[in-house]
Simulated assay, not measured.
Amino acid sequence: MRDLSVRFRTYGGHVHALRQINLHIARGETLAIVGESGSGKSVTSQAIMGLLPTSTAQITSGTITFDGRELTTLKPAQWREIQGRRIALIFQDPMTALNPTLTIGEQMTEGVRRHMKYSADQAKARAIQMLELVGISSPQQRLKQFPHEFSGGMRQRIVIAIALMCDPDLLIADEPTTALDVTIQAQILALFRQIQARTGVAIILITHDLGVVAGVADRVTVMYAGQCVETAEVHALFAQPAHPYTRALLASVPRLDMPAASLKAIAGQPPDLFAPPDGCAFAARCRHAMRICHQITPPATALPDDGSVRCWLHDARAPQAARRM
């Protein structure tokens, strides 16, 4: 994804949801995208999947290249060849992602019968195989059941199984553990690691939970107000975050080894994306902000291990005292 910008037309004007986004992911890699609500995480996944609403959304600049193919110029029929087959999406809420009027078997086999021309028996065998992979017992009997007959954790596993039915090259998981208790969360994250080890699928994990990120990601991109403000290898990001917003996010996460009084909130509010600021989007909330931060958007500065950060504090011309944060 290179310099991608997306805006939405509303009655109040244009909302600039994504602004000059740059992302990349390799085969077999897990990239986590984190940030608070409204930062553009889900819009990023919709853009990759070709699910932006055509009536209101507009890609104003940039490209999305998947395995050498440009996606932003595809027609609907060409998108249907990719959606679910080459790129699959795990939706945030398994309660609404599954059709309550269809059996699990019907919902699981639809994709492979369309994309891979499987017969009914082949599709059923593939569905049983996928249910076994995600840890659903008695899969042959389960195919005849409806979504309401499963717990929330089992429904999430079924949604994952559906996404894997066509053996995609890229799996996008949008907040896959949000509605689950911590025990089921751990099981789902372990499942992602097992699936990736077996299939080599690339995974984009969209979340606001930094604990989830630490458990499964190889690299992390931090989004704020429709921009990627920092990308780093996961251990480097936790050990030495480069952007003040990343530092603030980490400081706001409770830990067992810290007193409750030390938990810090991020003061202020994200900027209005109807009229994004000229400078750094985080400047109004940043205690290290300089004059230039309010005037000019910082360029991407390279970090070790293929990382980058958008912050004037990392510019060679920034004062030494400011750089130490």
Rank of each mutant, 00 (worst) to 15 (best):
L237H: 10
A261R: 10
V212Y: 02
A217H: 01
A265L: 12
L210M: 08
L256A: 12
G226R: 07
V253W: 02
T221Q: 09
A251W: 04
Y245N: 13
A251K: 14
V212S: 07
G215C: 10
D218Q: 06
A242I: 13
E230F: 03
M223A: 11
A251Y: 02
E233K: 06
C228N: 13
V229M: 12
E230L: 09
A217Y: 00
A225K: 05
L256Q: 14
L210N: 02
H235F: 13
P259N: 12
V229S: 06
V216S: 06
V222R: 11
L250M: 10
L210C: 03
V253Y: 01
D218W: 01
A265C: 00
E230R: 07
F238H: 07
P254Y: 05
L249N: 05
P244S: 14
L250K: 04
L237Q: 07
A267H: 09
A265V: 11
L249Y: 00
G215D: 12
P259E: 07
L263Q: 11
G211K: 06
S262N: 13
S262T: 15
R219E: 01
D218F: 00
M258D: 12
V234G: 04
P259Y: 00
A260E: 10
P241Q: 10
R219M: 01
V212T: 11
V216P: 04
I266F: 00
C228F: 02
H243T: 11
M258K: 15
V216T: 15
A260K: 15
